[in-house]
């Protein structure tokens, strides 16, 4: 889950920060942060899966179903999926969606 990623948290924080919401109630800030994180995660997953062909998608599902979560990244790399590029692109789009950059 993306919630555990310090970099992702900082990324979302940066978006909220650039919206100049210093006076935001801490709990609302936390909720907003969580909501945005979930949306970002949805978009990343969507982008990753869209980059796979049917067979690769089946293999990925197999890895998830058999709890081989730690193998997912190496699998994607082996299959030539540019994980970094896809995630960076999704994050860039997300960033621009919220900040109009």
């Amino acid at each position: 889950m993306l919630q555990d990623s310090q970099a992702a948290n900082q990324f979302i924080d940066k978006i909220i920060e650039e919206k100049n919401l210093q006076d935001l109630d801490a709990e609302v800030h936390k909720q907003l942060h969580n909501d945005l994180m979930r949306r970002l995660e949805d978009r990343i997953n969507h982008a990753i899966i869209n980059s796979l062909n049917n067979k690769q998608a089946t293999q990925l599902e197999h890895l998830i179903d058999t709890q081989q979560i730690d193998k997912i990244q190496s699998f994607l790399k082996k299959e030539g999926i540019n994980v970094n590029g896809i995630i960076a692109g999704t994050m860039s789009k997300f960033y621009s969606d919220y900040l109009g950059a």
Partner: peptide, 13 residues
């Protein structure tokens, strides 16, 4: 800004 979409150039994108 609008174009920074999914940049992966392989496969399903």
């Amino acid at each position: 800004a609008a174009s920074i979409a999914v940049p992966g150039v392989t496969g399903g994108v």
